[in-house]
């Protein structure tokens, strides 16, 4: 393994960037491919698929055998609003493998008693996300339906290409949200990415059921993106 590429790979992983270490199994030579790097032919297709599925494996291409080790950052979930739904969603999402943070500037909601063993930040999203900005491997779930709290993270998530962006609120609330986000300069395609009403339509009623509907929708966005290869 090329020591220089090993360092570059680890650097990419620390920066939460997706990368593939390619090894030619005949001569042991490596190549580091970052997500979005153009690679032609059969190998390019295999690389694209590996990034999409996150699965490492051997590939026969151009008459050679390669090993593709896929490094994809662990998915994060940022929940805006320390509400009843979040109390159910945070532990469920953690169980499903997400690295979860709950953010709410309203200190009456964001109390450790309500969120035991959860990474909880009682601050404005702008400040609470300084040390870990929203990225492409983050799901943003905004459930306060207070524009003062929800709008900034929603805009940030749409701009940084978070793999999932969902917002709680009635159709009326969402219509007003669309107006505000349009005024903020976001295009229709970006705004359309917001899952609203939030969650899969499973007829969920209780906060716990709504949490299941949201988590299922987030997992679908992660594992079955609507337009594979879009990025």
């Amino acid at each position: 393994m090329d020591p220089h590429l090993l360092r570059k790979l680890n650097e990419a992983r620390r920066e939460r960037k997706a990368a593939i270490m390619l090894t030619d199994l005949a001569d042991g030579r490596n190549r580091l491919v970052m997500k979005g790097d153009p690679v032609a032919g059969e190998l390019g297709e295999a690389i694209e698929k590996a990034f999409r599925t996150g699965k490492s494996g051997t590939v026969e291409a151009e008459g050679q055998r390669f090993f593709l080790k896929v490094h994809v950052p662990s998915p994060r979930m940022v929940i805006i609003g320390a509400v009843h739904i979040s109390q159910a969603l945070a532990p469920m999402a953690a169980m499903a493998g997400f690295d979860v943070r709950v953010i709410d500037p309203r200190t009456a909601f964001a109390t450790p008693e309500r969120f035991e063993n959860v990474d909880l930040v009682a601050d404005w999203p702008e400040d609470a996300l300084k040390d870990r900005p929203i990225d492409a491997f983050t799901a943003l779930v905004a459930v306060t339906h207070d524009p003062k709290i929800d709008d900034w993270p929603l805009i940030s998530a749409l701009k940084t290409g978070a793999f999932y962006v969902g917002a709680l609120g009635s159709r009326k609330t969402h219509a007003r949200r669309v107006e505000r986000l349009t005024e903020a300069g976001l295009g229709e395609a970006a705004i359309d990415r917001i899952a609203a009403p939030i969650g899969l339509d499973i007829g969920a009623q209780s906060p716990e059921e709504i949490a299941v509907a949201i988590l299922a929708q987030v997992i679908a966005a992660l594992r079955k993106p609507a337009q594979p290869g879009r990025d």
Binding site: M1, P3, L6, R7, L9, N10, R13, T23, L25, G57, T58, F67, K69
Partner: peptide, 22 residues
């Protein structure tokens, strides 16, 4: 393991990496 490999390498140790490929 790959972070460990990098640290050991920077410490001047000789390192081998084994990978499950199939």
């Amino acid at each position: 393991p790959l972070m460990v490999a990098e640290r050991w390498m920077l410490d001047g140790r000789e390192v081998a990496v084994a990978t499950v490929i199939e």
